[in-house]
Amino acid sequence: MDLTAIFQAAFALVVGLDPAFLAIVSLSLRVTLSAVLIAGLIGLPLGAALALARFRGRSVVIVILNALMGLPPVVAGLIVFLMLSRSGPLGSLGLLFTPTAMIVAQVLLVLPIVIALTRQTVEDLWAEYRDHLRSVGLEGMRAIPTLLFDGRFALATALLAGFGRASAEVGAVLIVGGNIAGYTRTMTTTITLETSKGDLPLALGLGLVLITLTLAINAVAFGASRIGARYAG
């Protein structure tokens, strides 16, 4: 196996526009972006609330959330698997081995990152804005929309971190998705499969495509936030 073979494989995948390959790429993006979107919808307000709330055991919650950022994907996958299995508590939903199950597992992975980083960002911003916001009557949870909006560029980075974790992981989606051809097969599970079939150039070629996609998404987000930051100061 040599580098040329890898690049050829990657090139053939992209240029060939093989429908199966495109389906895999679009499923990967769909699952990961959905997970990031859902984690954002839940995690941003929750992280902000945690930043502003004062209650007993708050530091314990923060430590746990920070630790959960390192939750092994396989464990997240296993938890979702046991919940969604027909013999599990949510079995009647029939969601195991579906893209939805994969999204749920990835939300579990991304959520702690979004909450923890949002809490940090919002807490720092609150320290700066506190006097003014309280002065104009935005106390407690009423300050959240302002803080989230003004922290938007830092928070975009938090979402990107979540996106990175979700798009790179294979353990959770493999367990709950089942790597079913044409249905729950993502880029990372395909890479695993091709590796196990010994087709290393194809596996690495796919890896190259994945890295390129991730790079592109990060570049666009970075550019957007730079331009935005220039307008927002």
Binding site: H132, T146, D150, A232
Partner: peptide, 25 residues
């Protein structure tokens, strides 16, 4: 209303800073 020693500027435009306070009120 109150103005502070170190001006607290929201990460928005000049106009949006004023509009935000009005919205909050």
């Amino acid at each position: 209303a109150m103005v502070f020693q170190k001006p607290i500027m929201l990460r928005r435009s000049v106009a949006a800073n004023v509009a935000h306070a009005l919205a909050a009120a």
